[in-house]
């Protein structure tokens, strides 16, 4: 079943972000992004609006003469930035209100893709769940955004989260140094997530992990005795939330903190997003280097 991920208003709000390349400074891609002509190809890709910092020589004066606006001509091989968006579509992502985590993740990924495409970067997509889903190789054309959206709007893969499989696969696909963005709730408790990310990092890739969590997962607001059923493996447990809430909060915070320490220790970016945070605001904060939550601010 097709899902509506974005609407024009969302893109309008994103356009106001006025993305700058420095947003990727954190990603270590500054050098590549500012030397777009290293390749031989000069195939025109599209125009894009001038942003302060663009080279003046790349202004399209003809377009300026026609429209009285500054556009920069971009070419297919203008940039060496390839972004791989790894979108978690496992069952654990099908949770949350008013929007589910997978919807939030898709909306966030779409916004990020749109911003990257808008500044001429190539964006690819790999969805996964228990298995690998759709794969769209990175392309820098704006019409690629439509394909990306359709892939995101497709029903999630489902099943149990297999983060390692997805990371392994993207490692195989990304021959050049790329930006690998993992958008997941990271509810894969097997050992090796940080190691896999570090391995990608060692291969020259920039890796950023966005952990998407629902407010209920983070704050555990339940009061009555409840039978909880796992979304992925179907296991059940009856608990009195009031009796174990403190312990739960302690556990999940320890998990997230441990994950952040492990990832950042290996040069991997880590950001936790609650679904209550609007995706455009989360993107804005991320691109401007602002902390996404209080813990991050403290860190």
């Amino acid at each position: 079943m097709k899902r509506e991920i974005i609407d024009p208003a969302y893109l309008t709000r994103l356009s106001g972000l006025n993305l700058r390349p420095r947003g990727f400074v954190e990603g270590g891609l500054v050098g590549q992004h500012r030397s777009p002509h290293q390749g031989a190809s000069v195939e025109f890709a599209q125009h894009r609006e001038y942003s302060p910092g663009d080279e003046i020589r790349r202004l399209d004066w003809k377009a300026y003469a026609k429209s009285d606006r500054h556009y920069i001509k971009t070419f297919e091989d203008e940039t060496n930035l390839r972004a791989y968006l790894l979108l978690d579509g496992s069952n654990s992502m099908d949770y949350g209100a008013p929007r589910t985590k997978d919807l939030y993740a898709a909306r966030f990924a779409a916004g990020l893709a749109w911003l990257l495409l808008k500044q001429g970067d190539a964006v690819g997509l790999l969805t996964f769940g228990a298995a690998l889903g759709q794969y769209l190789p990175p392309q820098a054309r704006m019409d690629h955004f439509g394909r990306l959206l359709r892939a995101m709007e497709a029903p999630p893969v489902g099943g149990q989260t297999d983060l390692l499989g997805a990371l392994r696969r993207v490692g195989e696909l990304a021959s050049k140094r790329s930006l690998i963005v993992l958008i997941s709730d990271c509810m894969d408790f097997r050992e090796g997530l940080a190691a896999a990310c570090r391995q990608l990092r060692q291969r020259g890739h920039q890796v950023v992990v966005f952990q998407i969590l629902d407010e209920a997962e983070w704050a555990f607001p339940f009061r009555e005795i409840t039978r909880f059923e796992d979304l992925e493996i179907g296991a059940q447990q009856v608990v009195d939330p009031r009796a174990m809430r403190a312990q739960y909060l302690k556990e999940i915070r320890a998990f997230c903190d441990g994950l952040r320490r492990a990832l950042r220790g290996g040069g991997v970016g880590y950001h936790r997003l609650l679904t209550t945070t609007p995706p455009e605001r989360a993107l804005s904060a991320y691109l401007h280097g602002a902390p996404l939550d209080e813990e991050e601010a403290r860190a």
Partner: peptide, 22 residues
């Protein structure tokens, strides 16, 4: 008892193991 499908059951299980006896 109301059934609630929940993604982070792992944390519940971990917490429950420590608080279940009490």
């Amino acid at each position: 008892i109301k059934l609630h499908r929940f993604p982070a059951l792992e944390f519940i299980l971990r917490s429950h193991r420590k608080t279940a006896r009490r």
